[in-house]
C-alpha cells in the first residue's frame, strides 16, 4: 500500500499568527495578564505554552509564569495500554491557588488528556479558573470538554491522524493531516 501523503493545514507563519491571536484573546478575555499562569501539556503543548507566554510578554510586557505537566499518571488507561508510557517531569514552580490557569495542548481530540490535566492541576491547589487553549480542535469528544481558545477547527474522520510539528522538537512548525490512524481500532 502506498504511504498516504500528509495534507498541510498550517505552515510556520499561520501557526505563529494563530498563537498571536490566542494570546490576544487570552488578554482580552481576562482584561490583561494579571494573575495569569500558563500550563503546557507535555510534550508539544509545553512548547506552545512557552511561546504564548513569550507573545504575551511582548504585548503587555508582563512575565507570565509557565508550568509544564506530564499527565500520564492521571490517565484512565494506564493498566490497559500496551506500553507503559515513559513519565516525564511535571514542573509547576508557582502556586496555582487563585490563579487563572491557561491550559495549553496541541490537539484537542477525545478530551481525555484534558480531563487528566484538570485533575492533576486541582491536586496542586484551587485555581480561580482554568481555561483551555488548543492549536487544533479536531472533534470526536468523548467527554463534555470544550476549548476556550482554538487555533483552528479541523473536522476530521476518526481514522485520520493530525500531526503537529513544533520547531523545538521536530525542527519545523506545521500541522498536517495524515490518513489512517493505525493506533485506533
Amino acid at each position: 500500500m502506498a504511504k498516504p501523503r500528509p495534507i498541510l493545514i498550517m505552515d510556520e507563519k499561520t501557526l505563529h499568527r494563530c498563537l498571536v491571536r490566542i494570546a490576544h484573546e487570552i488578554l482580552e478575555r481576562n482584561k490583561g495578564a494579571k494573575n495569569l499562569a500558563i500550563i503546557g501539556i507535555k510534550t508539544r503543548g509545553a512548547y506552545l505554552a512557552e511561546r504564548i507566554a513569550k507573545i504575551i510578554n511582548s504585548i503587555e510586557n508582563v512575565k507570565v509564569p509557565v508550568g509544564l505537566m506530564d499527565i500520564n499518571l492521571y490517565r484512565d488507561d494506564v493498566q490497559t495500554k500496551l506500553e507503559q508510557p515513559i513519565i516525564q517531569k511535571t514542573e509547576i514552580m508557582f502556586d496555582v491557588k487563585d490563579k487563572i490557569i491557561i491550559l495549553v495542548d496541541d490537539v484537542l481530540f477525545t478530551g481525555r488528556t484534558i480531563r487528566a490535566a484538570l485533575d492533576q492541576i486541582i491536586d496542586f491547589g484551587r485555581p480561580k479558573s482554568i481555561q483551555l487553549a488548543v492549536l487544533v480542535d479536531r472533534g470526536h469528544r468523548e467527554l463534555p470538554i470544550r476549548a476556550d481558545y482554538i487555533g483552528k477547527n479541523i473536522p476530521t474522520s476518526k481514522h485520520e491522524l493530525v500531526k503537529v510539528k513544533i520547531k523545538e522538537k521536530d525542527s519545523e512548525d506545521s500541522v498536517s493531516i495524515v490518513k489512517e490512524r493505525r493506533d485506533l481500532r
Binding site: L73, V78, I87, K89, T90, E91, D123, F124
Partner: peptide
C-alpha cells in the same frame, strides 16, 4: 529506566497533594 522514572516520582512527593490516581483499582 527505573532510575529515570524514580526521578519523576520524587517530584510527586514534593507536591501539596502527594498522591496520584495511577494505580486505582
Amino acid at each position: 529506566l527505573i532510575l529515570d522514572t524514580t526521578e519523576t516520582f520524587k517530584e510527586i512527593l514534593m507536591r501539596p497533594i502527594r498522591k496520584v490516581p495511577t494505580l486505582r483499582g
